[in-house]
Amino acid sequence: MSVTTESLGSRSHGDRVRGTAFYVLLLVSVTIGFLLLGVLLVDVIRKGIGYVDPTLLNEPNSSDPNKAGAGPAIRGTIYMMILLLVMVVPIGVGTALYLEEYANRERWYNRLLEINIQNLAAVPSIVYGILGLAFLVRGIGLGRVLLAGALILTLLVLPTVIVASREAIRAVPDSIRQGAYALGATQWQVVWRQVLPASIPGIATGSILALARAIGETAPLLLVGALTYVAVNPTLLGSYTALPVQIYQWIARPQEEFRVLAAAGIIVLLVILLTMNAFAIWLRNRYQRRW
């Protein structure tokens, strides 16, 4: 009959033990990834930091590990980053604007478009490599050139940019649009002068994260021919190599010296990527508006 305060306030011993055990398990699940990340970073830095020097940053690859560098590879990666930025951001933001501001959700083709983009986001990256091999390298005879690599990476991260841009556009409250319409703005004026400026921080953050992902991709580039010896600076329609591919090439060598060189290359790659990530997160925290 009577419910005492003790029975409400206290838990059985078994409940407490189970609760604590579960909590510990959860903590382990969360930390295991970071633990490994920490070990990975320490391991890579310990192995490779001694090799991060001007030779690595400037010289081309060589069969002598003491002379080998990743100069052309680093420049190839930077050129590709610029090409990507120019191609993926306009197409990605354009698609996001179409889907969020113009498309009628009731239409089957717009729903299909959305599912298509979601699906593309999960297609294995090597399949994009096959696409590049079939159409760009062989199909239209572009060959194994920088532009082919950049085009394939563009298609690869396009879904990521679209999803991030859509989220940023969706976060702009409707009252802003209504206000602009009430003042007589046309739809494009609303989009161009109100919606887009308000969503730029979100779009920029998403695009930088996507770009960072693209720069680290290796598998599709193997198929569109980044795995060649390149001594000169890459050009748009010339042979090229990229930093992750160069790293893979070194890992694949059996000699220990090249493994060390690979670790040094990884340090350079991670510095570029973590800088981009940190910048994106800073941008989000600095400019994100709460409506």
Partner: peptide, 24 residues
Amino acid sequence: VLKPALETLAGIPTVVFGFFALTF
């Protein structure tokens, strides 16, 4: 703190993980 940290973990290139798997 956790969410961006996980994002960073997700952003490590696979070639780096491969190196780690092979050499560590």
